[in-house]
Design a protein around this nucleic acid. Structure first.
Lengths: 134, 134
DNA sequence: CCTAACAAGACATTTTTTATCCTTTTAGGG
DNA sequence: CCCTAAAAGGATAAAAAATGTCTTGTTAGG
């Protein structure tokens, strides 16, 4: 359980590759896809999601391509992962019959809350700079 | 992401219900399923998995049913979750083209390793006694 | 031997993941 | 103005996983 999907994996590979490029070097999607071995059409979808929230900037037409939206040291792994996988939510409720909604009687809830915090903390502590290896 | 499946949710509900019963009270699957609002046939599969690894003991025939395999304070949430969801593995590898296999060049690997440890630590620190509320 | 109860395996359905394709939009260059 | 390059967006398809059911087998008690 707790497994990153392939999409998340691809997302990280792709954006780490971008982060490893010289500043202001525009990369074609096709180049990135080939370099990190991801189906180009799939990576396109992923980068569209990145683009919408500003993790990357994109340019169309001749000479177009992708750039990192911010410097690598200001992009955390948490942002990247949540961009494509959605928020980290291990704690859909678990005890008794109903919705829980943080019911006082729900003893498991705080546990999942802690799991969530721990995971977020780890991922937030890692930046693309760390991953791209300056 | 990182979401417990419904199976895991059901598993926890079911075994926590068992843990909340008086010692040596045998519970019918049908009783448990009704109490925690889980499809009986599905819960049956889950308890079969528990049974195989000794988390619960089962008795067949008239007067049969389920009992906790050990005292609640000796069963951790980690065991319960891993019994039905498999091991906690967030770190299928992620960088570059290939298998990684803990390649030295794989910078993300240690991050997922840390995530795994954190999650395991949290879940291991909670027992069925804690959840069943003495 | 009849009934109660769990065990095990096969099967069906639904949802999610993992793609691919086609059309549209934007931009640059001749 | 037209042609080509490149990303954006939407629809669709295939594969895998999750979710649930059914049938048959096994074990035990009365």
């Amino acid at each position: 359980m707790m497994e990153l999907t392939r999409k998340g994996e691809y997302a990280i590979r792709g954006i780490v590759y971008l982060a490893a490029q010289p500043v202001d070097r525009v990369c074609l999607l096709s180049e990135i896809a080939a370099a990190v071995d991801v189906p180009p059409t799939f990576l396109a979808k992923i980068f569209q999601q990145f683009s919408k929230i500003g993790l990357v900037r994109s340019y169309r037409g001749t000479g177009g391509g992708f750039l990192l939206g911010r410097v690598p040291e200001k992009i955390t792994l948490l942002e990247v992962v949540e961009a494509v996988e959605g928020p980290i939510i291990p704690n859909r409720c678990v005890v008794g019959t109903g919705e829980c909604a943080r019911d006082v009687s729900c003893t498991v809830h705080p546990v999942w809350k802690r799991v969530q915090e721990q995971v977020r903390d780890v991922l937030e502590g890692v930046t693309l700079k760390d991953l791209a290896g300056g």
